[in-house]
């Protein structure tokens, strides 16, 4: 057994550059979005040197963003005395004439159509309450799930103990946001065969701001590991289950049994990916499937048990970012 003791190291001593990455939008090669250089660049009191990149405009609550009345106000702003002030601590985003402030560290605030990973917290009358790292627990209605064997919806049998045959407290599900309730709770559904109960793997939670919207959130990495990136920051890493959609056994959709043959090397790969994601999250870097693959390759030079060390995690993160940059360049 080995245990290492360290003295604390100030965060500034670690490489600062990677912190800047979190504020620019970066997508995978499928999506590209241009950000106009902002001519209306306003009093950035932080010019003193914390933020070195001039295109990023960071604001704090009650800081003036602009006095120009031509702009439309978006989320995170309010008007006082004809000036647009920020109500959040975050980065100003400008899309044509719409100004909004995006906070960097916040609870999940989603859109319809988002893929989220959640944990069942409560079983209630004809519905489940799901924790999705948002203001309120999301609601998964009994009518929004597939019943096994394709039977007709059994509206009258909503007894608590019966519902637990499908989802129990503590189960992890992947679902899609269907609608909003008035109080801000989401309504989610698992009415597709790719959604449902999660098995064969490991759970990790990161800040929701680090997961970007992509075409698909279900990724299959080359190392034999499947990753589901929930937009709410909950991520599921599991062993690859090779199954095409028409082969899925509808009876087994709600089973709690993991597959029998998860080999030790599968477990190693899963543990590696989990640690890579943790390393990226610690340095506040955007998470998508390509950067995870780069981080995985960077991690191969270290032994599995060393991956939770601080400096190793930091190195992996920097290498992954460098790899992504070199692809772009």
């Amino acid at each position: 057994m080995n245990v290492t003791f360290h003295s604390p190291v100030p965060k500034a001593a670690l490489d600062n550059k990677s912190n800047m990455r979190g504020s620019k939008k970066k997508f995978t090669a499928e999506h590209e979005m241009d950000i106009d250089d902002d001519e209306h660049h306003h009093e950035n009191k932080l010019e003193g040197g914390i933020i070195k990149d001039p295109t990023i405009h960071v604001v704090t609550p009650a800081e003036v963003i602009t006095s120009d009345a031509a702009f439309m106000r978006g989320h995170g702003t309010y008007v006082e005395d004809e000036k647009v002030l920020s109500s959040l601590a975050g980065v100003v985003e400008r899309v044509n004439k719409l100004i909004s402030v995006r906070p960097l560290h916040t609870r999940y605030a989603g859109e319809i159509g988002d893929v989220v990973v959640g944990r069942i917290t409560e079983v209630a009358q004809k519905r489940w309450k799901v924790d999705v790292n948002a203001r309120q627990d999301a609601i998964l209605m009994l009518s929004s799930v597939n019943l096994p064997g394709g039977v007709q919806r059994r509206k009258q049998e909503s007894d608590e103990l019966q519902m637990r045959n499908f989802f129990m407290e503590g189960d992890l599900v992947v679902a899609e946001v269907q609608a909003f309730f008035g109080d801000g709770a989401y309504s989610i559904h698992t009415r597709s065969l790719k959604y449902g109960k999660l098995r064969n793997g490991s759970f990790i939670s990161v800040s929701p701001a680090l997961v970007q919207r992509c075409k698909s959130h279900f990724h299959s990495l080359s190392c034999g590991v499947d990753v589901i990136l929930g937009l709410n920051g909950y991520i599921w890493v599991s062993a690859h289950v090779p199954q095409s959609l028409d082969e899925i056994d509808t009876e087994q959709v709600y089973s709690n049994k993991n597959k029998e043959d998860i080999t030790p090397s599968d477990r190693e790969s899963i543990a590696r990916v989990v640690n890579c994601i943790r390393a990226l999250a610690q340095d506040y870097i955007f998470i998508n499937d390509s950067i995870i693959s780069f981080a995985y390759e960077a991690s191969l030079q270290y032994a599995l048990k060393d991956l939770h060390k601080r400096h190793v995690m930091h190195d992996i993160a920097t290498e992954a970012v460098a790899a992504v940059d070199s692809i772009k360049a």
Binding site: M1, N2, T4, F5, H6, E268, A271, L304, K305, H308
Partner: peptide
């Protein structure tokens, strides 16, 4: 092989 890659008798880093 634990979920985070450690072995049964491994500690995490301590500051």
């Amino acid at each position: 092989i634990r979920a985070d890659g450690r072995q049964r008798s491994d500690f995490r880093e301590i500051t």
